[in-house]
Design a protein around this nucleic acid. Structure first.
Lengths: 220, 220
DNA sequence: ACCTGAACACCGTTCAAGT
DNA sequence: ACCTGAACACCGTTCAAGT
């Protein structure tokens, strides 16, 4: 296509993302991406060490759309907005969602968002060390929850998580049926996030002079 | 090797797990597994619909070693033992850990362990619906945390998560350095689990007549 | 010196040919 | 009827040959 411009990492990542959005995660092959750009597959290796490095860049590009949280908002709201924004990005680019997942937020947007999380956690009252550990736990949860969400909602080909709900609810002694929000839903996602936020509140109160009670005052 | 026996799903899964343990996740190809068994690659398709189905069986086999928790123990200890057991299984079979991760616990050991989780959560005071939603959140956290742990500890080839700690702690304003337990460590894993357990306690108390206080009485 | 593309060593899976 | 393996349509990456 754009054989005029001189082929930057950004151009390559954008082409790869488009291929992924259009044809799914495993269509993002070096050969397929090169074809999209109208260049030799080997030309990509001049800008990325290997396929893994290229996918890092694609995952980061997909996070461009996630805004920084409003600094005036409370720490819980900021974390919720970050999580929601990352969820939206993952659902907007299901092809790359699994990669957003597993990759360490070393550069660019990943780093930006991880730092925003840590800032919010420090504001919650955690020490820097606690904040980083907590951010890692949050990233872990987000990763897998979004991978599940995309699998289920993506193109409908993986309904197996729905079966889990059904099978488990039967075995649990009570037929829960449709009362249970489907795996990958916004509601299921927020539920897990709420558990973590409650845990963070507890952690924050532990290291400080005891507040007057366990409360949800800061929450939304 | 064992060309005598008639090639069951179990035999195939065992051979695949051995290949994965010995040569890593991406060595578990249909062709390589067939070679290990001394049979035609196509013979595997008589027992599994496709590679994905075979890997489901391998992931489940890897969970054979995870024991049921002591039913006499408190619900928190049971959850901790389940999480610890799954962590051990993942570290014992790093080749398959990423697959233990993403797969719905529909059958066999996955289902067994998911039910044990749900039972513990119901004993914690959650409704069946809450218990299932919480179990999904726990599975999400376990998945990604173990995938990280294996990536870092596996064969040393992915140290990037360590760099995250270093980079983030610098940016967070304070050099945290070695005070921070490494990503993938037992300590980091337990920290995230602790956050979730605290969240579960809060959730359990919400729906019921208020206990006399927030306590860790049931914990270890 | 830089770039290219043929070649290497693989894949998962289909399907027609063998027993 | 059952099983086999050649063949199809791909991979990521190396490396020697071209400009």
């Amino acid at each position: 296509m754009s054989r005029t411009r001189p082929l930057t990492p950004e151009l390559i990542a954008a082409a790869a993302l488009e291929v992924g959005d259009r044809e799914g995660a495993k269509a993002m092959s070096m050969r397929r991406i090169a074809a999209e750009l109208g260049c030799d597959p080997m030309a990509l290796y001049r800008h990325f060490a290997d396929r893994d490095a290229l996918l890092d860049a694609v995952a980061d590009l997909a996070l461009n759309d996630v805004p920084d949280p409003d600094p005036a908002a409370g720490w819980e709201d900021r974390l919720r907005h970050l999580a929601g924004g990352i969820r939206s990005a993952a659902l907007a680019h299901p092809g790359i969602a699994a990669h957003i997942a597993g990759r360490p937020p070393l550069h660019g947007n990943g780093r930006r968002l991880a730092l925003a999380m840590i800032t919010a956690l420090v504001d919650a009252g955690l020490s820097p060390t606690q904040a980083i550990r907590t951010a890692q736990a949050l990233v872990a949860y987000l990763s897998a929850a979004l991978a599940m969400a995309v699998r289920v909602g993506g193109d409908g080909r993986d309904e197996r998580w729905h079966h889990v709900n059904r099978a488990l609810s039967e075995s649990a002694g009570q037929p829960v049926g449709d009362a249970l929000p489907p795996t990958g839903s916004e509601e299921q996602f927020s539920y897990g996030l709420r558990l973590l936020l409650a845990g963070i509140r507890a952690e924050a109160h532990d290291g400080r002079p005891r507040q007057h009670g366990v409360t949800t005052a800061g929450g939304g």
